[in-house]
């Protein structure tokens, strides 16, 4: 057993004709959060399902805490907790009963399962609903219970497949805090998400996956630097003003700057600092933007930068509406 909690090498999976994974590799060190980022159909869930021994890979090799998921699935199962993409809970059981059931099937004694279940219900703000059948839970409540179920056996490795989808902002922030705490206590978390922001806030490292292959695997900082994270868009009073502004502030950000009509667009690595500097320089020169927009890169832009094509149209041709 090395330092890697999760080790994935050349993972392949086909569903009939559909190629879901075509050689996925990554490693996750113990005690870290690893983000798996990608558009719909990229293969995130497939990867998680193979790692959590639900399905078998067609090729390649995967280990969880040193247990090969295909040769020693039972060993691997003792190491993992899973919150799948769709909440896997029993609608007829209460919150407490659901957690105790999962705990018992994870082979922890019933008493312990019960006391941990109560702790988890509290931690996920579900104590009031603990005695109600899941049928009566809202989508977000189910989701939280599902994540709680993944934690009941206190497994060293956690797989969370889009854990915050459908959660309100408060629940999302709270779940992030829970995840950070777990990692502080030594757990390893593999988390999939569609939100760059989420991966950015939580994960130390991110693998971007597209069409079943890893197209980038780096620290969040390095990825952001490579992607020119923040876009600052200044709309000036006139075209000459725009050209003048670009000449003045062009040095602040250097990633893909452009002038389009009255608009100056800049790609910046250090968003906030760049914005302050830009406005200072413009102010000193008596220029004032009519309109100002700051945009974090969307997942689309990440893909555009990484693969040169839009994730949804599968590279069907060059973007056509660029001209002004």
């Amino acid at each position: 057993m090395g330092d890697a909690a999760i080790m994935v090498e050349g993972l392949r999976k086909n569903y009939g004709e559909v190629v879901a994974l075509q050689g996925v590799d990554f490693e996750v060190p113990v005690g870290t959060i690893f983000g798996l980022l990608g558009p719909n159909g990229a293969g995130k869930t497939t990867t998680v399902r193979i790692l959590s021994t639900i399905i078998r890979a067609d090729g390649g090799h995967a280990e969880v805490m040193g247990h090969d998921v295909s040769a020693d699935p039972v060993g691997a199962r003792f190491q993992i907790g899973l919150a799948g993409q769709s909440a896997s809970v029993d609608a007829n059981l209460t919150g407490l009963e659901n957690l105790v059931l999962v705990g018992m099937l994870a082979q922890i004694p019933k008493r312990l399962a019960r006391s941990r279940a109560n702790e988890l219900l509290e931690r996920f703000f579900l104590s009031d609903a603990a005695g109600r059948p899941l049928r009566t839970y809202s989508g977000g409540m189910r989701r939280r219970l599902d994540v709680a179920a993944a934690l009941i056996a206190r497994p060293p490795v956690l797989f969370l497949d889009e854990p915050t989808t459908g959660l309100d902002i408060q629940s999302r922030t709270e779940l992030w805090e829970v995840i950070r705490e777990l990692v502080r206590d030594g757990s390893t978390v593999l988390l999939t998400t569609q939100y760059l922001e989420e991966a950015d806030r939580l994960a130390g490292r991110i693998a971007v996956i597209d069409k079943g292959t890893v197209v980038a695997n780096d620290t969040t900082t390095a990825l952001k630097a490579r992607l020119g994270s923040t876009t600052i868009e200044l709309e000036m009073g006139s075209e000459e003003e725009a050209i003048r502004s670009d000449a003045l502030v062009g040095h602040v950000c250097t990633l893909a700057n452009e002038v389009e009509g009255k608009t100056v667009r800049m790609g910046c690595v250090q968003g906030p600092q760049a914005l302050i500097e830009t406005l200072r320089v413009l102010g000193e020169n008596g220029l004032e933007p009519v309109n100002l927009e700051v945009r974090e890169p969307t997942l689309d832009e990440v893909f555009l930068a990484l693969t040169g094509e839009h994730p949804l149209d599968g590279g069907s041709g060059p973007a056509s509406k660029d001209g002004g």
Partner: peptide, 17 residues
């Protein structure tokens, strides 16, 4: 359909159960 079997499969329980 509800994903219950999927969850059972990720647990170190007896499959026959």
């Amino acid at each position: 359909q509800s994903g219950m079997l999927e969850r059972f499969r990720s647990l170190p329980m007896a499959r026959s159960a």
